[in-house]
Simulated assay, not measured.
Amino acid sequence: MARPSKYSAEFGSDAIALWRASAGRRTFEDVAVGLNVNPETLRTWVRDADSPSAAAGASGDAEGEPARLRAENARLLKNEKEWQLEREILRRAAAYSAREMK
């Protein structure tokens, strides 16, 4: 069994936010030294925060999320096909009207 962390959850979330704010400019080690934390500890916090299970835990719905997303994608694809058909009809109508005016 892992021992409890000596850092509070608030400290960990603040450290993650600090690293994300400086991402691309500073490494894990740079940020960790400033916080007096082991770089691997910071890396683990960020990795755990980015994991899908952490995101699902935040929303409280790990099981229904993929099904909901698939249904939403299917609905959006259906709407896109309808819009493409409507656009094609309008394009043809505009071309027909342009021919009639000449």
Rank of each mutant, 00 (worst) to 15 (best):
G12V: 10
A23C: 03
V33K: 10
A55W: 12
L90T: 03
A56Y: 06
K78T: 05
D14M: 12
E40C: 04
A58R: 04
A54F: 12
R70V: 04
A49F: 15
E29Q: 07
T41A: 05
E63I: 12
P66G: 08
F28K: 07
A21K: 09
N38T: 00
D30K: 01
T44A: 05
E65C: 10
G24R: 11
A17G: 15
T44S: 04
P39C: 06
A15L: 09
R47Q: 06
E88Q: 08
F11K: 15
P39R: 08
W19K: 11
R91C: 06
R47E: 03
A17M: 12
T41Y: 01
E88D: 07
K81Q: 09
A67E: 09
A67V: 12
S53E: 15
E100K: 14
A56L: 15
R47P: 00
S13A: 13
I89P: 01
Y96L: 15
A56W: 04
G34M: 08
R47Y: 01
D14L: 12
M101V: 14
A54D: 11
V46M: 02
A74T: 05
S51L: 07
G12W: 12
N36C: 03
K102L: 11
A74E: 05
S53W: 15
W45K: 02
R68S: 10
